[in-house]
């Protein structure tokens, strides 16, 4: 028992260490990084910005963690963001004032997309990467069709609150992430659902033989991922008070997958940690802020990002850790011999 809890802790060690190192680098580059003040009823500072800007990717990562745990992947979440944003913007520009209706429409759009993905993967047994690729490509087209390819700007204070409002001093997107995290964590860890998801990922046929409804579980994780994406899409639209179907959520599916992987999940499925996926999203966002703060010319952005991520992933690799410790061991031995 003590060993397994030790291992459990070790899983948290490296991603947290990575985040900490990035924080320290930021503090060195810009001493104001940790400066937080209370202004106009909300906290204000770079650290809060990191949390706020990481929110959409964190939401995507929550859903993606579940999907990846079933040995799947959902490439369509970026496009679903665009669809949800476009649907909400469409309703607002058509004069709908009820906030519940606007948000509801966005979430329903997401749910429909999730059902399509879940149906293709769970019931049609199409490989997840192919099944979700369909909606990744087509979804952006659908989003563009909704508002005839235009960037729609709207003015709806209630809806804008989703992206720019604050609750208890925290930006509202951060609050939404915390709520979503709490719900999903309760559902997966306080019920057997989490175990079922991991079982389906680890061995789908075995889980079918012990009586798990593998198809329904797959369907449900794609639905959760799509609804999370829809929420993220509405946050992104509310933040800029406009829906930009061409660019909203573009390539964010890759960031979400990366966040889950940085959080130590295996793409082969079978295990997940929602909290680690969120930490992964924070690492990605902190890295973005580091690059902006550092003032390095933009053409090096992707290079720096790639290098940092390779380092984080290497540190997590058991093989690399073993080689590192062997190196240390060898050095110690040499010192001992010298003595």
């Amino acid at each position: 028992m003590s060993l397994s809890s030790n291992q459990h802790l070790r899983r948290y060690l490296w991603p947290c260490a990575g985040l900490l190192v990035l924080f320290i680098i930021n503090a060195i580059i810009s001493p104001e990084f940790f400066h937080i003040e209370f202004k106009d009823g909300r906290f204000y500072g770079s650290l809060i910005d990191v949390l706020n800007r990481a929110a959409p990717v964190a939401l995507l990562a929550i859903g993606m963690a579940l999907v990846i745990a079933t040995a799947g992947v959902d490439l369509s979440v970026g496009s679903i963001m665009a669809i949800a944003g476009a649907v909400s913007a469409y309703f607002i520009t058509k004069g709908v004032d009820s906030l519940a209706l606007i948000i509801g429409a966005g979430l329903v759009a997401g749910l429909i997309a999730g059902i399509i993905n879940g149906f293709l993967v769970g019931y049609m047994s199409i490989q997840p990467i192919v099944a979700t690729l369909i909606l990744m490509v087509a979804g952006r087209g659908i989003a563009q069709l909704i508002n005839e390819g235009q960037i729609v700007t709207f003015d709806h204070p209630g809806f804008a609150f989703l992206g720019t409002g604050s609750f208890l001093g925290l930006p509202f997107p951060v609050v939404l992430v915390i709520i979503t995290f709490a719900i999903v964590q309760l559902l997966t860890r306080r019920t057997a659902l989490g175990l079922y998801i991991e079982a389906v990922g680890a061995n789908p046929s075995a889980s079918r033989y012990i009586g798990l409804n593998e198809k329904a579980i797959k369907m449900s994780v794609y639905c959760v991922a799509a609804v999370c994406a829809a929420l993220a899409g509405m946050i992104a639209a509310a933040d800029i008070r406009g829906s930009d179907a061409n660019n909203a959520g573009l390539w964010l599916e890759l960031d979400a997958i990366l966040a889950v992987v940085i959080g130590g999940a295996s793409l082969m499925g079978g295990r997940f940690s929602i909290l680690l996926a969120i930490i992964g999203a924070l690492i990605i966002q902190t890295l973005t802020v580091t690059i902006i703060l550092s003032g390095i010319p933009p053409k090096y952005n992707l290079l720096i990002k790639a290098t940092a991520i390779i380092l984080v992933l290497l540190l997590q690799s058991p093989l690399f850790q073993k080689q590192l410790s062997q190196l240390k061991f060898w050095k110690n031995k040499k010192e001992m011999n010298n003595a």
Binding site: S46, I291, N301
Partner: peptide, 25 residues
């Protein structure tokens, strides 16, 4: 004094400017 890409989009423009402004006191 500071230059960074925001990829021609509104969302990135807002995000990058937030960080730049904080870095410039």
């Amino acid at each position: 004094i500071r230059s960074q890409t925001a990829e021609f989009t509104r969302a990135k423009g807002k995000e990058v400017m937030e960080t730049m402004l904080k870095a410039e006191g």
